[in-house]
Amino acid sequence: MTLRITIADVAKKAEVSKSTVSQFLNGRFEYMGIKTRTRIEKAIKELDYQPNVVARSLKKKTTSTIGIIVANILHEFSTQVIRAIENVCHKNGISTIICNADDNPEKERIYIETLLAKQVDGLIVVPIRRNSDIYEKLVDENFPIVFLDRLVEGLPIDTVLLDNETASRIAVNHLIENGYERISIVTTSIIENITPRVERINGYKKALESNGLPIHLDYIKAMDITQLGEGINEIFSLREPPDAIISGNDLTLMEILKYTFENNIEIGKDVGLITIDEVSFSQIHNPPLTTVAQPTFQMGKETATILLNKINNKVDNQHSFIHRYKPTLIVRNSTQKEGVTNE
Rank of each mutant, 00 (worst) to 15 (best):
N26W: 02
I191D: 13
L253H: 04
C99R: 08
Q318A: 12
I112P: 01
G93K: 13
T275C: 15
E165C: 04
I145F: 13
L138E: 11
D270H: 11
V315T: 15
E199I: 07
P196C: 13
I220W: 03
Q298A: 02
I5P: 02
S210W: 00
L3A: 07
I215P: 01
R169M: 05
S320P: 04
G67R: 08
N193H: 15
P327I: 01
Y49K: 01
K107F: 06
Q336R: 12
Q119E: 10
L162W: 05
Y111G: 04
T303E: 13
T62W: 02
N286T: 07
G154C: 08
D48S: 08
N312W: 01
K42N: 08
L217Q: 11
A8D: 14
V70G: 04
N249A: 12
T188E: 15
V81A: 07
N202Y: 10
L148M: 12
D9A: 13
G203K: 08
A43H: 08
N312H: 10
E234Q: 07
V186W: 00
L213I: 09
V198Y: 14
T252W: 14
I190W: 12
N342S: 12
Q298W: 01
I176A: 03
R39S: 04
S280D: 11
G27S: 09
V271G: 01
N72M: 12
Y325F: 15
P127V: 11
F143H: 02
A55S: 14
L208F: 02
G122M: 13
E141P: 02
I73T: 06
R39N: 09
K269M: 03
A43Q: 10
K301I: 06
V186F: 00
K310Q: 14
M223Y: 09
N286E: 14
Q318H: 13
K205G: 04
Y325S: 04
T195W: 15
N104M: 02
K107D: 05
E136N: 04
N312C: 05
V172L: 02
N263C: 04
K60Y: 05
I246P: 02
I225K: 06
T159V: 11
L115A: 02
T6A: 06
I5F: 13
D102N: 14
I112E: 08
T20G: 04
S282R: 09
R182F: 00
T335I: 00
F297D: 15
Q227F: 03
P242I: 15
K61G: 05
R39A: 08
P295T: 02
I235Y: 00
K12T: 06
N52W: 15
E108L: 07
S132M: 09
I170R: 00
S168R: 09
T275R: 06
R332V: 10
L228E: 08
N249F: 13
L151I: 12
A222T: 05
Y31Q: 10
L148Y: 15
H319G: 06
I97Q: 03
G33N: 12
V279Q: 07
E302K: 11
H319D: 10
I225N: 03
N286Y: 09
R39H: 11
G203T: 06
T159P: 07
G122T: 05
T188S: 11
D270V: 05
K61Y: 01
V172H: 01
I73A: 05
K45D: 11
M32A: 12
N317L: 12
A11E: 09
I245S: 04
I73F: 05
Q227H: 11
D277T: 06
L115C: 06
Y325V: 05
K61M: 09
A117P: 01
G154K: 10
T159E: 10
T195Y: 14
S57R: 01
S210V: 07
